[in-house]
Amino acid sequence: MWSYNKILQYPIKIKNPDPRLAKFIISQYGGPDGELGASLRYLSQRFGMPDQKSKAILNDVGTEELRTP
């Protein structure tokens, strides 16, 4: 269940825009090794795990990764 908290895990306050850097950083949003892919991968894999610990880790790391895209 998705539930939004109006806060970031780490504060982001960029004083000077710099689109040159945005061009690279977007990769960690939706690129092959990015946060979106990671969160969806863990949340999809959790269904097939054989023990409680691995189910919990995939669920909880997937949830944390979902905070980061």
């Binding site: 895990q9 780490y10 825009p17 950083i25 977007i26 949003y29 946060e35 905070r67 980061t68 895209p69």
Partner: peptide, 8 residues
């Protein structure tokens, strides 16, 4: 967070 960085 990454989206916020790109946005800003």
């Amino acid at each position: 967070m990454v989206g916020s960085i790109v946005h800003q």
